[in-house]
Amino acid sequence: MSSISKPDSNLTTTLTPTNQLNRTLFGHRLVQGGILLTLIWKWSFFVAANSMYDAIPLSDPFFPAWLQSAITVRVAFVTAVAAVGLNLATDRHRLQWICSLTALLCMTVLCIHQASYNDMTFVTAWWACVWAMWFVNHLNDPDQASLLRRASFLSRLIISLILLGGASGKWTAEYWSGEVFADIYFKDREFWVFQWLRSYFEPDQLRTIAMWYSRKVVLIETIAGLGLWALPPRIAAVMAILLLASIALLSNFLLFSVLFALIGLASVGLLVPRS
């Protein structure tokens, strides 16, 4: 097997078969780690769902019965955690493939179940699982540098799409005026940013701050949604990680459940060899 190498002037870019394998396996594990963190961050949801959907079932003819069942949520969530955990630990290709498929199926169920359809955590995790399924299918490709470049491109496309989805739904007057965030976050949300702002500013000043906060969100999601995918891998990776982390750090730590899977995907760009 031949190695892919750069001229001697840059030893860090020389890829031997061993470190190629490590890079791709590391990339696979970064994404699995992101998905696992996403699910662990959602543990409080699972605990609540575990008791609530048995205690207060809500019969709705819109959903098939099995997609209203508390048992379905339990099985899908716990199986997903187990599959992702095993996928993170194993280096057996067949098992990685089975775990990736299992996690993808579980996320699909959670995305359409009455109890969890509304939670974007499972949508971002589903997209990360789609990426993982594709990546595992190519883990044994001979040209691993090319695989990492394609994997990074796919991860950038997915992150761009998620951000574009957030942006396009905000291209409306209620977000441009800040009305939505003013009510959801600035009015009474117990989070350090908003508590601090409430302690220093009057309600009419808070409305103005909410407007600029909202416009900042709309513009950043729009720009990143339209352009992130086209950036070079490493620059895109750093920008995406900073952007995604800032979303949770400046608005709501619970959002890390939505973002960890995407941060894992973004990190793949850091593994692309310089060329």
Partner: peptide, 22 residues
């Protein structure tokens, strides 16, 4: 949850919709 059918509704789940609409 007022799409004409559950199937059509379910097919839309991959469309991201974080903090959409008022």
């Amino acid at each position: 949850l007022r799409t004409s059918s559950f199937t059509v509704w379910a097919m839309q789940f991959p469309i991201p919709a974080m903090y959409n609409f008022a």
